[in-house]
Design a binder for these strands. Structure first.
Length: 746
DNA sequence: GAGCACTGC
């Protein structure tokens, strides 16, 4: 056996050991330990142990920088800890180098005892861009081509090869893989990065890995977090050892207001102008909660800045939020405006942003941060089954993250628009994990597919409210994804394979029976992307007119289909621009549609259409919609435009963005939005007969409370009896007459 | 007659 552990993997007697064919797959693997010195030697050596090619000069240059990172000081300590424990918790603040270095250390430690050819190290990230950019950087650091030994895997893009042993990927992607491989058997080590963000996928992966680890003693798990809640992770992972690495950022001086600010928007604007007039050079970053607020603030700041004396430099306000076209988002990287005169005072830019600048986007040159202490957060109300966005106070961790944005390039200042005592006493330590704030229908379906039988006692780091789990189970049972015993049905199994909400998956799966799977594919894709209709403030009328071209009188789902078809005949940005349509959203919809289509083909679900000339073309589509969304139905009550949701009895209005040509008695909706009032958005007319036919259990009239909805259903049932024999024909006739009357009545 | 925090499959 070679003395060099990094050449040992070439020896056939080792490579062959523990092959997964036959016998227990994870027994008998050779586990040779390495230490920090050996790794250091391998890093400095002339041969790259991963490729057996000589190290390039560029590699050596980058290596010098790597050795300057704080985390490098603790490489030996990490490797020792990693090899002696199945779980390791690692805390490294911004600038520690953990995301790029730790996975490489793991690769050096796992390589000498490569237990099976093809075994990989996975490092998860909450965001796609991070997975891609970090993989690129690490490929450079390791002197390999991206996609060969080091790669990444995100939705729509798999940049890996059979040679890949270090793979950066989104957490959601690893979760998807786990659904087909419950043991995650292709990985020797899984590293969960940014675990403090507590995304839905990371939380589920943590519970899952804890479970898998029992059956795979060879599997190692590293959990990396940026904040100081490490004890919680340690406790959760059986008292795992902890490694702390200091960060490397510049100091940020934090200021609080002496008194609470009654109007944070006004205070934020005032603070920006104050900084601009009184503080030294450097750009400003302001955190606000949403698009409207941000545009408003930009206008006001620009106005105020124009009124300042010329002894003060120019100030340019730049908005930043996710629905902004990429071209406009790029403006945050523009230089600050030039002085008004060659020897005048320097200009300054102020970026007014949502939370997107907290983690997803980094702007260099920010020296001042203004933090009013709020963000929009999702909350779920299981009682009425509604998710909504609420402006809420941020957590201490989030405030710290925001402040850190001022210290990336040099020492900075952070102005918090709340009192120090509020910060200490009122703010939560951590932001509530997502799993406690959302509808769990897809999560519960996924867990079942992951082989978790006892959903209530699954080892959640923070268990969701039992009522939320119950709501999810109930929904899945009505959709026939779970049987009455809570077991996954074949339909549920099929549903779980689609990256869609259960309702959307259901309508897609039944769509071939209604001869409209091609169309439902398009609708499902359109519903999976952000709102495709653009409506700039200055051109609302034009935008509304453009949107009206696609409107279908029977509903917004059908309008989305029209829009998709129109785009397919003109799939270019010019056409989108001219029609007030988001090109980005349409491209995304195309991507999603292709992915869903591939799944349909794999599952042997037919891709079919009803002939467009056939008068049942649109009805077939609406019937398929009904099969997925019968729990999202509202009934018009009284003569007014008010609707009441079925079963939950919430009073709602049609969202003004709807394109219906009247107020139909029964509608199904895609989402319930809670803003100034309750609205149902993306709405399509539905026939009550379909509800009774396709969701007989849910629409069992006996279970309805006395009220208008129940009486209406009873009328439908009686009507159905009378006209039996020519059922659908009779309905068609009535519907047409009714519509005609509604129109003429205006 | 009003809005879309941010991610992810």
């Amino acid at each position: 056996m070679s003395d060099n552990p990094y050449l040992a993997h070439l020896e056939p007697h080792q490579r062959g050991t523990g092959s997964s064919e036959g016998g227990a797959p994870f027994d008998g693997w050779i586990a040779r330990k390495v230490d920090g010195k050996q790794v250091e030697k391998a890093m400095d050596g002339t041969t790259n142990p991963f490729t057996l090619r000589p190290h390039s000069k560029r590699y050596m240059d980058i290596l010098k920088l790597r050795k300057n990172l704080p985390v490098h000081q603790q490489m030996s300590e990490f490797i020792e800890m990693f090899q002696s424990s199945q779980f390791t918790v690692m805390v490294g603040e911004t600038g520690s180098g953990k995301t790029t270095q730790i996975p490489q250390y793991v690769a050096y430690a796992d390589l000498p005892h490569l237990r099976r050819p093809g075994l990989q190290v996975a490092c998860t990230q909450p965001r796609r861009v991070a997975a891609m950019s970090v993989a690129k950087r690490v490929a450079d650091e390791m002197d390999v081509s991206l996609g060969d030994e080091v790669g990444y895997s995100i939705r729509f893009e798999d940049c890996t090869s059979p040679k890949t042993f270090l793979k950066y990927m989104t957490d959601g992607m690893l979760l998807r893989e786990a659904m087909n491989d419950h043991m995650l058997s292709r990985y020797s080590t899984v590293i969960l990065d940014e675990a403090h963000e507590r995304t839905l996928a990371t939380d589920i992966l943590m519970g899952l890995l804890k479970d898998i680890a029992k059956r795979r003693p060879d599997l190692k798990i590293v959990v990396m977090s940026a904040t100081l809640d490490a004890a919680k992770f340690q406790n959760y992972f059986f008292g795992a050892p902890l490694l702390k690495v200091p960060g490397r950022t510049f100091s940020v001086e934090v200021f609080y207001t002496p008194e609470p600010e009654p109007d944070y928007l006004e205070a934020a604007i005032r603070t920006v102008l104050m900084i601009h007039q009184a503080e030294g050079e450097g750009d400003i970053l302001v955190f606000l909660t949403g698009e409207e607020e941000i545009e408003d603030a930009c206008r006001k700041i620009s106005m105020e800045a124009d009124n300042l004396p010329h002894s003060i430099g120019p100030l340019r306000a730049i908005p930043l939020y996710s629905s902004l076209p990429p071209q406009q988002q790029q403006k945050i990287f523009d230089k600050a405006p030039a002085p008004r005169t060659p020897d005048g005072p320097p200009g300054r830019k102020v970026v007014i942003s949502t939370n997107i600048a907290e983690t997803s986007l980094t702007i260099d040159g920010i020296v001042y941060v203004v933090d009013p202490g709020f963000s929009k957060q999702k909350i779920y109300n299981p009682r009425i089954r509604v998710e909504s966005l609420l402006v809420s106070p941020i957590s201490k961790a989030s405030a710290q993250q925001r402040a850190g944005r001022a210290g990336r390039t040099r020492p900075g200042k952070c102005f918090r628009l709340y009192t120090e005592s509020d910060f200490v006493k009122e703010l939560e330590e951590q932001t509530y994990p997502e799993i406690l704030r959302c509808n769990l229908a897809s999560v519960i379906l996924e867990l079942k597919k992951l082989g978790i039988d006892d959903l209530v006692h699954f080892d959640y780091m923070d268990p969701p409210a039992p009522e939320t789990v119950m709501r999810a189970l109930e929904l899945l049972n009505y959709l026939a994804a779970f049987d009455d015993e809570g077991n996954l049905t074949p339909l549920g199994d099929l549903m779980s394979t689609f990256p869609l909400e259960p309702q959307l998956a259901k309508m897609l799966i039944v769509s071939p029976e209604f001869k409209c799977s091609n169309e439902i594919l398009s609708i499902a894709a359109m519903l999976s992307v952000p709102n495709p209709y653009l409506r700039p403030n200055s051109q609302r009328k034009e935008a509304d007119e453009a949107k009206a071209q696609f409107a279908h009188p029977h509903g917004d789902h059908l309008s989305l289909l029209n829009l998709y078809h129109a785009y397919r005949t003109n799939p270019d940005s010019q056409w989108c621009w001219a029609n007030y349509v988001s090109f980005r959203a349409m491209q995304q919809a195309d991507n999603v549609r292709n992915q869903l289509k591939r799944s349909m083909e794999k599952m042997d679900l037919d891709l079919v259409s009803t002939a467009f000339e056939d008068k049942s073309y649109y009805d077939n589509i609406r019937r398929a919609l009904t099969c997925g969304f019968f729990m999202h139905v509202a009934h018009r009550e009284g003569d007014k435009n008010g609707y009441t949701t079925v079963k939950d009895n919430q009073i709602v209005g049609l969202h003004p963005s709807n394109g219906l040509d009247n107020n139909p008695e029964w509608v199904l909706y895609n989402e319930f939005v809670l803003t100034t009032r309750n609205f149902i958005r993306t709405v399509t007319e539905v026939r009550p007969e379909w509800l009774l036919e396709y969701a007989a259990d849910y629409y069992d009239v006996k279970t309805f409370p006395q009220g208008e909805t129940r009486r209406a259903l009873e009328r439908v049932m009686q009507g159905g009896k009378k006209s039996s024999g020519s059922k659908s024909g009779g309905d068609e006739g009535r519907e047409r007459k009714k519509r005609k009357k509604d129109k003429s009545g205006r």
